[in-house]
Amino acid sequence: MRFWRLPLDAEHHSIPRGEVHIIDNRCKGCGFCVEFCPNGCLRESKRFNVKGYHPPEMVYGAEEDCGDCGLCSLICPEFAIYTQLKEAKKITEDDIQKVTTRYSRKDRRYAKKR
């Protein structure tokens, strides 16, 4: 799917870019954030924390994808992850193409898993 022009109200909207903060040593490795991140930004890391669990980490190359929705901080039972607004970006033509590629990448990621 391709958008052939910018939406007419593009000036009134912005794309929030979030920054994910993970407090490693609080994590108990339940995997809720990894499963329910709507943009597929997180994955289970291979390193251990002090309790012996694998805390989450950003998927390589997904640093720009976090939309600061805050679902990970809401669904984390351990108060171990939160997001902060990094910048509110203006919408450009490139961003619209990026959105479509982002979702297709997530689909591929899920297809591999199953």
Binding site: F32, Y53, I75, C76, P77, E78
Partner: peptide, 14 residues
């Protein structure tokens, strides 16, 4: 907290 990994209680508190 003392709740098990995978317990939903933390989500309710949040």
């Amino acid at each position: 907290h003392i709740w098990c990994p995978g317990c939903g209680l933390g989500i309710v508190v949040t």
